[in-house]
Design a protein around this nucleic acid. Structure first.
Length: 347
DNA sequence: AAGACGGGGGT
DNA sequence: ACCCCAGTCTT
């Protein structure tokens, strides 16, 4: 007689053996090779707060350019930032570099949860993901996917974020301390990504349907419950895009804070309330070329874009660089400023 | 405990 | 156009 836990784990792994996604950083379930901790770490950091579709091509570029953690550690920071541009949460790129240096220095990744979690940019989730997938530690990472799968499986109706510890306990009880921990974690991720999806779960395709208490109660689509969302404030600002022939003037933003370490045109402060009337950073025949709306996690930005043809001498003493418009891809410009620069007509 | 921190995808 | 999604670090 199998217990419910045994049934769930067996069904999950059997499903994974035939349905595992093929991903650039993944070792297939029937492949005897051991996953490369560098690839597991890099992919998991890139995947924090984002999606497989966005990460896959960027991951391939990263490993082609830096095949080992030692190579990444030796990369110049601005080159790494340029490769990261567009992926968001730029502190991850800074921490990635710091982590690579620390790992190269100590001669490899630590093989314990505590050792992993002490590294920059590796928290409770990523430590468990690397531990389970790369080192076979019998632990289960809890990301949004696994949280959702588990809340449904166990019909946990308390709202997030308060329910987080309850769900984490359920994950431990069901999935820790068993065989194939890396495949178990990846199976849960694939299930959450393709079957047990947020809005309209495909319960008919789920290998765990028979043991899913949420589906049994008709609750699956409604779980996990969430506390009411906070209202997102609105801020306004101006961006000044100086042009000279086929170049635009960009500055390096401060290393920490919003979009830290990325290249951007000069902007006004971004203030709550109506349009602002800040003075341009330097003289020019400024004219408006349009407006960009960009939504950040904690506010919505309306950016009015101004442009002027400016001779470089007029900016003498101002730190920054004139960048060719054709070279803007790969040079560390965040998405909001790519949208702004796209509004500026060719000289 | 709460807030800061991007961007992309579905509807 | 709007809504939803998702880890780590700092304060």
């Amino acid at each position: 007689m199998m217990t419910r836990r045994q049934r769930i784990r067996a069904a999950l792994l059997t499903w994974y053996d035939s349905h595992a996604r093929t991903l650039p950083w993944r070792v297939a379930p029937d492949d005897p090779r051991v996953p490369d901790p560098y690839a597991v770490w890099l992919s998991e950091v890139m995947l924090q707060q984002t999606t497989v579709a966005a990460v896959a091509p960027r991951f391939e570029r990263f490993v082609a350019r830096w095949p080992t953690v030692e190579a990444l550690a030796a990369a110049p920071a601005e080159v790494l930032m340029a490769e990261w541009a567009g992926l968001g949460y730029y502190a991850r790129a800074r921490n990635l570099h710091a982590c690579a240096k620390a790992v190269a220095e100590r001669g490899g990744f630590p093989r314990t949860l505590e050792g992993l979690q002490a590294l920059p940019g590796i928290g409770a989730y990523t430590a468990r993901a690397i531990g389970a997938i790369a080192f076979g530690l019998e632990v289960t990472p809890v990301d949004g996917n696994i949280e959702r799968v588990t809340a449904r499986l166990e019909a946990i109706t308390d709202p997030l974020p308060g329910a987080r510890p309850v769900i984490a306990d359920a994950v431990r009880t069901l999935f820790d301390d068993g065989p194939r921990p890396g495949d178990t974690a990846q199976a849960l991720m694939d299930l959450g990504s393709g079957v047990c999806v947020p809005r309209a779960p495909r319960c008919g395709a789920c290998p765990l349907l028979g043991d899913c208490q949420g589906a049994g109660k008709g609750l699956a689509a409604a779980l996990p419950a969430r506390a009411p969302k906070a209202v997102r404030p609105s801020r306004h600002g101006l961006a000044w895009v100086a042009t000279h022939k086929d170049r635009v003037f960009l500055e390096l933003r401060p290393p920490t804070g919003l979009l830290g370490g990325t290249l951007a045109p000069p902007t006004s402060p971004w203030v709550e309330g109506g349009p602002c009337d800040a003075a341009p950073p330097f003289a020019g025949s400024w004219r408006p070329v349009g407006t960009v709306v960009h939504v950040f996690t904690h506010f919505r930005l309306t950016l009015d874009v101004m442009t002027a043809a400016v001779v470089p001498q007029a900016l003498a003493g101002r730190a920054g660089q004139w960048v060719e418009r054709s070279g803007l891809d790969g040079c560390g410009v965040a998405t909001v400023f790519r949208k702004a620069l796209a509004l500026v007509p060719e000289a």
